[in-house]
C-alpha cells in the first residue's frame, strides 16, 4: 500500500505575546498509508490539531517536513479535505448545495454531480433534509452534512479534527457508528484527531498516542480488530478491552503531566 501522508521530524513552535515560546510539536513522525484510518490521540494542547492544520496546508512546520502523496505540503488543496469540530456548513446554502459546493472544482457534468450529491446525502442519512438550511439542523446533522461535503470532493486524505467533540454523548455514539459504517464502505484514507480513547480504537487501524507538550509520539498502537467491525459490540471484544486499558493508562500519565505543567503555559 502506498504512503499517503508522511511526517518527518516535524516541529512547530508558537511565539506567545510576551516573547515566550511554546513548543507544540517536536520530532513528530507519522505515516498514513492508502485506505488506512489513523487516529492521533493526546491530552489537549499537545499539538495534535496543529499537526492536522499543517497537513491541510493551513499552517506550516518550523522544522521537518510533511509529505502528502510524496509531495511537500505548501498550500491547502482539495486533495486534503477537512472536517472541523465547529460547524462549518455555509449558512446561506441548503444541505444539498453545501455538499455540491465540495464539487465546485470538478469538471463533471451537472447530472453526475447531482448523482454524487444524492449518493452522499443518502450515505449520511440526510436525504430528507436536502433542501433545508443549516440553521434548521441539529449539531449531529450538521456534522453529517459536513462529512458528506468533504467526502463528495473525493479527497486523497480526509482530515478530521475532533469532528464529534461538540456533540452530546448520545449523538456522538450515533455519529461514531455512522462514521465506522461509512468509512468501511468508502475506505477513504482518514487522519483523525480526537481525545476520546474508545472512539480512536473502534474507528482506527492505528492509533498514535501523543505526549503532553512538547508533542511527540509516545506510542503507536496497531488496532488489529478485524473489519467489518460492529460498533455497538466492540466494547465486548476482549481485544478492544485490553487496548482500551493500555491506552487509557498511557493517556492518563500524559494528561496528568500536562495538567501539572499546563498552568505554566497558555493553551491554544
Amino acid at each position: 500500500m502506498s504512503i499517503k501522508v508522511e511526517a518527518r521530524n516535524v516541529g512547530r513552535v508558537f511565539k506567545m505575546r510576551h516573547g515566550q515560546e511554546v513548543i507544540a510539536l517536536q520530532d513528530f513522525n507519522l505515516t498514513v498509508r492508502e485506505n488506512e484510518f489513523v487516529s492521533i490521540i493526546g491530552p489537549s494542547g499537545c499539538g495534535k490539531s496543529s499537526f492536522l492544520q499543517m497537513v491541510a496546508g493551513l499552517d506550516f512546520p518550523d522544522s521537518g517536513e510533511i509529505l502528502v502523496d510524496g509531495a511537500l505540503v505548501n498550500s491547502p488543496g482539495a486533495d486534503r479535505g477537512m472536517v472541523f469540530q465547529g460547524y462549518t456548513l455555509f449558512p446561506w446554502l441548503t444541505v444539498e448545495d453545501n455538499v455540491r459546493f465540495g464539487l465546485k472544482k470538478s469538471s463533471l457534468p451537472a447530472e453526475e454531480k447531482a448523482e454524487i450529491v444524492r449518493g452522499y446525502l443518502e450515505l449520511v442519512g440526510l436525504t430528507a433534509f436536502a433542501r433545508v438550511y443549516p440553521r434548521q439542523l441539529s449539531g449531529g446533522m450538521r456534522q453529517r452534512a459536513a462529512i458528506a461535503r468533504a467526502l463528495a470532493a473525493k479527497p486523497k486524505v480526509l482530515l478530521m479534527d475532533e469532528p464529534f467533540g461538540a456533540l452530546d454523548a448520545q449523538t456522538r455514539l450515533m455519529m461514531q457508528a455512522l462514521l465506522l459504517e461509512v468509512w468501511e464502505r468508502e475506505r477513504t484514507t482518514v487522519l483523525f484527531v480526537t481525545h476520546d480513547v474508545e472512539e480512536a480504537i473502534v474507528l482506527s487501524d492505528r492509533v498514535y498516542l501523543m505526549s503532553a507538550r512538547p508533542g511527540k509520539v509516545r506510542e503507536v498502537m496497531e488496532i488489529d480488530i478485524p473489519r467489518p467491525r460492529k460498533f455497538f459490540e466492540a466494547e465486548y471484544n476482549p481485544k478492544f478491552q485490553s487496548l482500551r486499558k493500555q491506552l487509557l493508562e498511557l493517556i492518563r500519565e500524559e494528561v496528568e503531566s500536562a495538567f501539572v505543567a499546563g498552568f505554566a503555559t497558555p493553551n491554544f
Binding site: 491541510a56 496546508g57 493551513l58 491547502p76 488543496g77 482539495a78 486534503r80 479535505g81 477537512m82 472541523f84 465547529g86 462549518t88 455555509f90 449558512p91 446561506w92 459546493f101 465540495g102 465546485k104 472544482k105 459536513a146 461535503r149 468533504a150 470532493a153 479527497p155 482530515l159
Partner: peptide, 28 residues
C-alpha cells in the same frame, strides 16, 4: 468565522474565490 474560510481552502478554493464565494455571502 475563520473555520468557514479554512474549510473553503480545503475544498480547493483559491483566496479570491473564498472572498467572493464564501466571505461575502456570509458577511452580507
Amino acid at each position: 468565522p475563520k473555520e468557514l474560510v479554512q474549510t473553503s481552502y480545503t475544498l480547493g478554493l483559491g483566496k479570491w474565490e473564498v472572498l467572493r464565494d464564501v466571505v461575502l455571502p456570509t458577511a452580507l
